[in-house]
Computed example of a mutant assay.
Amino acid sequence: MQPITVLHNLGVALAAANVDTDQLIPARFMKEPRSVGYGQFLLYDVRHDEHGTPDAEFILHRPKANNAEVMVSRRNFGAGSSREAAVYALVDYGFRCVVAPSFGDIFASNAVNNGLLPAVVEEEEAERLLAALGDAPADIYVDLEQQLIRVAEVQVSFSISPVWRTKLLNGWDDIDMTRQHAHTITEFAAHYSAQFPWTAAQPPESAIISKG
Results as ranks from 00 to 15, higher is better:
Tyr44Pro: 03
Glu57Met: 10
Leu116Glu: 08
Asn113Cys: 11
Leu116Asp: 11
Gly104Val: 00
Val72Trp: 06
Asp139Val: 09
Phe107Asp: 05
Phe103Val: 06
Gln195His: 12
Phe196Gly: 09
Val163Lys: 13
Asn113Gln: 15
Leu90Lys: 11
His181Thr: 14
Leu14Asp: 06
Asp55Ala: 10
Asp45Ala: 10
Val19His: 02
Asn114Trp: 08
Gln180Trp: 08
Ala27Arg: 15
Leu43Thr: 00
Thr5Cys: 06
Ala194Ser: 12
Tyr88Asp: 14
Asn110Ser: 07
Leu42Asp: 06
Arg165Ser: 06
Gln147Leu: 07
Asp135Cys: 03
Ala15Leu: 08
Pro203His: 09
Gln2Trp: 12
Asp92Lys: 03
Gly80Gln: 05
Pro101Glu: 03
Lys31Asn: 06
Leu130Cys: 09
Phe95Gly: 05
Asp139Gln: 14
Asn18Thr: 07
Ser161Lys: 13
Arg28Gln: 13
Gly11Phe: 05
Val19Gln: 03
Ile209Thr: 13
Ser210Cys: 08
Arg179Val: 12
Ser82Asn: 04
Ala86Met: 00
Ala126Asp: 06
Pro101Ser: 06
Ala131Trp: 06
Asp49Ser: 04
Glu122His: 14
Gln40Ser: 09
Ile175Thr: 01
Gly134Met: 09
Thr21Glu: 01
Leu148Cys: 15
Glu124Thr: 13
Leu7Val: 15
Ala85Ser: 15
Ala68Ser: 13
Asp143Thr: 08
Glu127Met: 10
Arg128Ile: 07
Cys97Trp: 04
Arg75Ile: 00
Gln23His: 07
Ala85Met: 08
Val6Arg: 15
Arg28His: 11
Pro203Val: 01
Ala68Val: 11
Gly52Trp: 01
Ile140Leu: 07
Glu84Cys: 00
